[in-house]
Write a protein that binds this DNA or RNA. Sequence first.
DNA 1: TTTAGCACTCCTTTCGATTGAGTGCTAACG
DNA 2: CGTTAGCACTCAATCGAAAGGAGTGCTAAA
Lengths: 341, 341
Amino acid sequence: MLSERQKLILSTIVDDYIRSAEPVGSRTISKRSDVGFSPATIRNEMSDLEELGFLEQPHTSAGRIPSHKGYRYYVDHLVKLGSLSVKELDVLKLFFAERLQEMEHMIQHVATVLSSLTNYTSIVLGPELLNTTLKHLQIVPLNDTSAVAIIVTNTGHVENKIIAIPEGMPVGELERIVNLMNARLSGVPLIHFKSRLHSEVSSELGKYVSKYEELTRMIESTLQSDEEDRIFVSGSTNMLTQPEFKDVDKVKGILDLFDEAHTLVKLFSAAPRGIQVRIGTENSVEAINNCSLITASYSIDGQLLGTVGILGPTRMEYGKVISLLDHLSKDMALMMARWYK
Amino acid sequence: MLSERQKLILSTIVDDYIRSAEPVGSRTISKRSDVGFSPATIRNEMSDLEELGFLEQPHTSAGRIPSHKGYRYYVDHLVKLGSLSVKELDVLKLFFAERLQEMEHMIQHVATVLSSLTNYTSIVLGPELLNTTLKHLQIVPLNDTSAVAIIVTNTGHVENKIIAIPEGMPVGELERIVNLMNARLSGVPLIHFKSRLHSEVSSELGKYVSKYEELTRMIESTLQSDEEDRIFVSGSTNMLTQPEFKDVDKVKGILDLFDEAHTLVKLFSAAPRGIQVRIGTENSVEAINNCSLITASYSIDGQLLGTVGILGPTRMEYGKVISLLDHLSKDMALMMARWYK
DNA sequence: TTTAGCACTCCTTTCGATTGAGTGCTAACG
DNA sequence: CGTTAGCACTCAATCGAAAGGAGTGCTAAA
């Protein structure tokens, strides 16, 4: 357990380091108006804090910087949640007044706003398609062998994929099956689509049962294709403005990560409800072991939809970012609710 | 007009500099087996070439590097088009054997292959939607006020947009109009869609003429939304591996460019038929004034469809890249032809 | 015309020397 | 006994001089 004075000093060091990116010395702390101790006293405390593992020294005659453990303690006990500035609130208000039509555009826009407000990189995981319900299924033949399967959800999302028409199935029959599916499956949550497809429709298919298996498998694959389309990144080059990443080799790995939608989806799918701060090596992905990732989930009626996140250096403005994400994730949930109902 | 010997020397300098990224000295050139002159002779020629503006000296006691004019001459007269290696041909053959279904995936894949074969950044501009013909038009109502307009082209491309249902238009009437449009406009090239829409359909609309205007305007807007979706980038972080960009400030502007699909589309739309090499400041976009951009257009029956491009440092492997782009753009044209016919 | 020789330039590397921010320890102070 | 002033010590960063070396330009000889 840290004493009040230790907390004050740790907190001051973290704040100062976040601002300056330079190791913080005892004199710097001592000069601050809210700390009424001499440099020598501070030094003793700093020495203790280092022994406890909260601080590190790049080298003997440098100031101290927070260790991962130090950041962790700061985030858990000391961080002062900044309230959003008038300017930031204005931006958000304006943004949510805009009522973008397509959900993709809305989410991309959220990412852009986040990265420009924070100067970090923002990553947003959109809701899974499976949470929506089927509005309309359509199959448009392109030629004798292939067709486009189109699925429209109640949120207005359109998913499509080119499929092969089962050999020997006439167009008329294809239409009949699709009509049947529409009649029976409209309004069904896509997560139940697969099972309902079999229970509701398969009995009425007559002689095309085997062909039909082939067809449904392809329609199902249309639903699975979207995993990587759920991820939206903005401000990736903001990483380059951070002094800790002025060395090209250090950013390369991070920037490469942003192109791997696959890895990002995995990283974000693992995020829990509410707000989570993962510092340095707490991240499972090695490329961002010198970064912190703050995520906030958004949900409707307790059902987890997706995650909003900010990636920056471990020396990140935790207070500001946490309150911003908290605010925004709630706004997003509200906005999503309009779509889903 | 340069003498044969000057050409040989210029060519050798450019080749060597492309390989090493270091200023090239007279001794280095002299040692090469195909140049039978002493360093002193080479020096005299280099001095002449510098006076003519083909070479530059970073400082008095350094070797020479090619100027923009030097690269230009090299590209126009000296470059040896490398034939593709067996390995590269294998990659391409394998790739085009794969027959990806969706055009988007195919194009994205082309970009990936290009960047991994060259270690530069590849940018591909896909064909305009307007070159395709209408296969099917569909409007799916979501609720009382909005619907999704879906356009399927003969290439299997699906474009969709959420539109507002004109006030006071019953669903049945909406369906009737869409059916009419489908009957009359199927097979029409999208570039003529707008004009045909009016001439073919407007007479038969009865009392909904004014509402109908509103509706068609929105359907038309679905076609225009795709401009930025035509651009595909791969290997953007390859820029970071080039020694001339080891300084973060120098790459920031370039990487930022890749996020501005808008600017890229403009840059690529301006590309002429065939292969073009734009060196340094020949590029209109300032961010890439230290880069060279090589583009190759692809077309069917003389109609320009799109452009494949490689962006790298001015010190780029011109010979290799040019022949690769040439080869690939022709393969792409063939592949596209299958879609369009 | 070509080339060997040589003085000269100037970047780069190296290596102390210096500087200065910051520490740890000790002893004095309230 | 906690706090602080004083002081010696450490070590990265900065600076400058010296050395090294790659490369040039010029001149004169082959």
